[in-house]
């Protein structure tokens, strides 16, 4: 016996516990795209002549982000969409996933820029991982990747930089910052105001649960990579993910609640806290909030 879609009579492919709905393929796709459009309209209003840079890794999240942005905005003659990939230099992992990203950008006919750690920072992630270091591999990787994405986005005159962060990523980060008592980072998670030198970030998938992002990629036959990075994950984030998923399974809707609560909190928090100073890194000139940027600090260029 099969279960029927709540909106039509076709066979359901998914049960959203948090909404109580069974959805068929067509209505699932519609539901995901409706949520993404709503997020964009509420938080990242699209302007005439926007140049939208989309960070793509070949993984499911960023591929879905690019695919949906292209589907929604690809026919607007005034809007330009450009994909940017960063090759961190992780052997046996990234080259394969960047190939998949290329397949997608070719399929969509989207311009695709590829930068690498080696060419921009002079060092690969594999080399960094092998060094004596104070922090986890992902701390280096994240900072250096963001640095390159922002630079590349600035170079093409991008007005927005889209990343594939999904509901799970956001809920995990919120919980992690709570556990660490890091309210400054909380505020920085919110959609920031435009700052000269920093391209405005947008997370159109922030209201889509991770497994629905995967399902969306699957039903649209997107070329995506489900494999795992050999340096995967800060240990603590893994613990939070597990905790949150256990809680979500028992109490559906928890991830959405965390996000909604955070959205309310952050407005009030931002008023309480002094705005971050915006400075230029005195080593590389990158826009940042201290006198030396994170990338230069991590690479010991100070």
């Amino acid at each position: 016996m099969t279960i029927k879609c709540k909106k039509c009579n076709h066979e359901a492919i998914v049960f959203q516990k948090y909404s109580g709905m069974h959805l068929c393929k067509r209505h699932f796709v519609e539901d995901v795209e409706r949520k993404i459009k709503l997020t964009i309209r509420k938080e990242y209003s699209i302007q005439k002549n926007d140049v939208i840079a989309v960070a793509v890794s070949g993984g499911k999240d960023s591929s879905v982000a690019l695919y949906v942005i292209h589907k929604i905005l690809g026919n607007r003659p005034d809007i330009k969409i450009v994909a940017i990939s960063v090759d961190e230099g992780i052997d046996g992992y990234r080259p394969e996933s960047i190939e998949l990203a290329k397949n997608l950008t070719e399929m969509l006919g989207v311009q695709h820029i590829i930068k690498s750690f080696k060419e921009v920072h002079g060092v690969t992630m594999d080399e960094l991982a092998a060094m004596d270091r104070e922090k986890g591999a992902c701390s280096y990787c994240g900072v250096l990747r963001k640095n390159i994405l922002n630079k590349a986005a600035l170079e093409i005159g991008a007005t927005k930089l889209v990343t594939g962060h999904n509901l799970d990523d956001e809920a995990q980060t919120i919980l992690l910052n709570h556990f660490r008592g890091d309210m400054e980072r909380m505020v920085r998670l919110a959609p920031p105001a435009a700052v000269e030198g920093l391209v405005l970030r947008a997370k159109p998938l922030k209201n889509i649960p991770e497994k629905e992002v995967a399902l969306y990629a699957l039903v649209n036959s997107l070329p995506v990579d489900f494999s795992e990075c050999p340096y995967a994950g800060e240990a603590i984030r893994g613990e939070i993910r597990e905790l949150l998923n256990d809680f979500e399974a028992k109490h559906p809707g928890t991830k959405y609640s965390l996000l909604r609560g955070f959205d309310k909190l952050v407005g009030a928090l931002a008023k309480e806290m002094p705005p971050a100073k915006i400075e230029k890194c005195r080593v590389c000139g990158e826009t940042c909030t201290e006198d030396i940027c994170q990338a230069c600090k991590l690479l010991g260029r100070a």
Binding site: K60, A214, F226, S227, C229, A232, G233
Partner: peptide, 20 residues
């Protein structure tokens, strides 16, 4: 849909949540 009754003796489980 995961609340449905299993009606096959051959299934694939695709792990979609990984680090990275």
């Amino acid at each position: 849909p995961l609340d449905g009754a299993v009606n096959s003796d051959k299934l694939t489980i695709l792990k979609v949540v990984t680090g990275g």
